[in-house]
Every structure is written in C-alpha cells, then in structure tokens.
Design a binder for these strands. Structure first.
Lengths: 240, 240
DNA sequence: GAGTGGTCTAGACCACAAT
DNA sequence: TTGTGGTCTAGACCACTCG
C-alpha cells in the first residue's frame, strides 16, 4: 500500500521514464497535482521534492517544476582528473579553471591531523572550480602543507598542482580516496549551481609522496547534472 | 538569513558535531523542538528529515530520533571487492554471502544492450547480499550472459564469480565502472536495512573479457551506515 | 494580476513502543 | 496510557516570473 505522496511520485516518475514529460519540460504544478489527486498541496509538494532530491526534477521559483535531462550527460573519467584540461580539449569542449581562493592559513586540528602536521604549520587553502563550456562541473577544495611546496604561486594553481610537483622533482607514490554520497551545503550548491537537496558525488583524497609525506588533502564535488563519472580499470595481471 | 527549519537543522547538527548528542542517543523529539523553537511540528520535522537524508540521524517510529554513529565505521577497500571473503576474514570479522536470487531470464532491452546481446538470449539474474558480522553491507545485482558461463551453478555464485571465470580459462581484461549517488528504492533499502531517504553509494560496472565480450553487468549498493569505502591507488609509473 | 514554488501553521488521525 | 514518528489537511503569506 503506497502513501498518497508515493502514489504521486510514482505517477510523475513514470511519466518521466516513459517520456510523457520530456527533458526541460514542465511537469504538473503543485496545485494541479493537488487537485487532480485530491490531496493537499503539501502532499503533492512532497512527491516533487523527493524527485528533486533523487535527481529527476528541478524547480524554478515562480516558474515551475521541470524534468532534468539525464540522458545526454557527458562522461568524465575519474582517473584522468589530473589531466583535466587536456582531456576536455580532446572532446572539442572548452575547459576553464577558476581559482576562487588561494590563501596561506593555519589548519584546524582535523586538517592538520590529516596532513600529518601541527596546527602551527602553514598550509595553502585552495578552492578551484573546473568548468566545461562555461558550466561548473567540479568543485575542488585543497589543503597543502606549505613546507612541501614553499614557492607555490597562484599561477601554478591556475594550471596544474601536479605539474608543479613534478617540476620540484617530487612524485606521488600513492593516493587514498574515499567515495562519499552527500547532499552538499549551500556553499557547494552555489558554486556548482545545484538544486537544493540534490544528492552529489564527493571524493576525499590524500596524496602521498615517495618519502611518505602528505602532499595534499583534497575534497572534490562532482556535478551530476551534466556529467557522469566513469572509471576504466585495465587488467594489469594480478588484480582480477 | 536562515529559515526556521534551517535554524533548527543547524542547532541539531551542531549538537551532533560538538558531541552534545552522542551516537545512538536521542535528539529532542519533534514536539519538543516545535515548542522550544516556537514553530509548528511540521517545521521541526523538516529539519530532522533533512538530517536523516544527509546521514546524520535515524528515526525509529514510536521511539524517537537518534544520532547515527559515523565515527566508528570500518573501512572497505573498493578494489578488493573481488576478494571480499578473504579480506574480511583478515580483519577478524565474519563474512557471509546470501544469494537472494539465481535465475535464468530473458533480459530487457536495456540490459541486453548493455551486455551486447539480444533480448532472446538467456542471462543469469543474480542477487547477492554481502554481510559482515551478520550485518548487510553490500547489495549486488548481476546480469551475466549465459553463453559465456553455460554451466554456472548457485554454488559458484555462493563463492566467487571470478573464481569460476578463471577456472573456465577466461580473464577480465577491463572493467568500466560508473559512480553514482542515489536514494535507493524500497527494495534496496530493505535488503540493506537503510533509513528512508538516506543517500547511498552505488557503482554500476561492466566486465569485459579478452575477446571483448561482456561477462557481466553489475549494480552494487554500499551501505554507508557501518562502512566507509576507500580506494588506494599506487603509482605505477605513468598515471600521475 | 495570475500562477508558480518556498515557507509555515495548527490542527488531525494513525501505527508503534514503552510503561 | 503517554509519547513518538508518519501522514495528511486546509488554509496562509511570501518572493518570484511572466504577460
């Protein structure tokens, strides 16, 4: 036995999947749904809100509720993040990196612990937004111990952290990544122009150098409205 | 300017982070919050619901709303899924695989397309739940073309698909994985005993053999209540 | 001005858990 | 019986969009 809002959710979702409601077209308004299902507006609203959170719809205040275009999303390959610029160009699209923050700060206890330093050591705080064809795709928040990268400039950050690292004769030996689904806070939501309460894909990672020092602690937020995130693993001989 | 439900959400979240509300202890009830913040119950409720979706709280009908224990989650390494049983034993915990479904079916058009076969070809439909210490951790839904694995039995599935594959002289050449955050449908929710509207981590993958035929299409749902999902990448020489 | 979504209220009835 | 969360109602006011 479905509840009323589940009934409405099912009805709308069905329409989306079957193509009765096409991408970027309106679904019935909250008032229309309330009337046609003989429920209160709050109940109809709950159904639509759930489908927004699940990523099927998006709302525009004053206008209506629309079907999200999930079919025509482009693909981004996760292991190729390092070569973001090059990879995007290869698809004929235009990449751009916006450096939103580049500061020298004292880390919180949590950050210091992750980087294996103390709260008295300096760290770079870096926020970057990766765009493709002027659309924000990835938000990156990075903490880097200053002692490893003493002469880092905003110019390096505008391009590639890893190019800088290589130029300094360092080499990343290991990366530890954690995969986390989240509903982002408002700051992330604004930077990636996401819908409220939309689930998002997050990776937290630590890069470890050849001497076991930690080069960076980075949080990556991926905008799933326009892109799908894939990874290709080739058999190297022993994994499978 | 925060809305009222955001104000309450912030208050509770703060209490959780600061430790005023301890793991598996109650937060104030909806009625208590409604009174102390001078709002209607629906408004207080919305704040708690949001925190459930975000993974900070869980609710038990008739009892109350509780703080989820996120600190003491164990770690599972993603690339080691193949050796699930062995890896879990190594930590001193007890792994178990429940085969919930093992059937020979005709695939839908969507599934057939993903497997590179027709809707007239047979496929195995397999559902498995991976448990650690009797707690469901991973739900796995697999479609396998029968022509590649003609003599597959439930016994093989109880153990390892990949052991079977090796025994047949095959070898997985490549895996294509897609990472997706989702709010699972009720079936998945029940299998993994998840909270309603809780965001979950999902991987869809295709395994490709040396002759480019597709061995499997698999959907994996990871229960993030009890586990964190990490991946370690070692530098093989050219990736970074 | 009419329609939309965003927020909020003050009730109500229910199923469930604990005492 | 009391308290909890789950669902739902029938209103209300607001900010926004568009004609």
């Amino acid at each position: 036995m479905l509840t009323k809002h589940e009934e409405i959710e099912k009805f709308i979702l069905n329409g989306v999947i079957k193509g009765n409601y096409k991408p970027d077209e309106k679904v019935p308004s909250e008032n229309q749904l309330a009337e046609s299902f003989s429920v209160s507006r709050m109940t109809a609203r709950k159904a639509l809100d759930t489908l927004v959170t699940k990523g099927y719809l998006y709302k525009i205040k004053g206008k209506g509720t629309y079907v999200k275009d999930r079919e025509n999303r482009d693909i981004i390959y996760l292991d190729e993040m390092i070569g973001f610029t090059k990879r995007v160009r290869r698809t004929g699209k235009v990449p751009r990196t916006d450096v939103k923050a580049f500061e020298l700060i004292k880390p919180s206890e949590d950050i210091a612990a992750r980087l294996g330093i103390t709260t008295k050591d300096d760290v770079y705080y870096i926020e970057r937004i990766r765009n493709i064809d002027n659309e924000p795709v990835i938000l990156e928040v990075t903490y880097m111990p200053a002692y490893i990268s003493p002469d880092l400039t905003i110019d390096h950050v505008q391009k590639s952290k890893y190019d800088y690292l290589r130029a300094k004769g360092h080499r990343i030996e290991e990366m530890v990544k954690e995969y986390i689904p989240v509903i982002p806070e408002s700051k992330v939501r604004e930077d990636l122009s996401l819908d409220k309460n939309m689930t998002v894909f997050k990776i937290e990672l630590i890069s470890i150098l050849e001497d076991r020092s930690i080069f960076e602690y980075t949080k990556l937020y991926y905008n799933q409205n326009k892109y799908r995130f894939l990874q290709i693993t080739k058999n190297t001989g022993k994994s499978f």
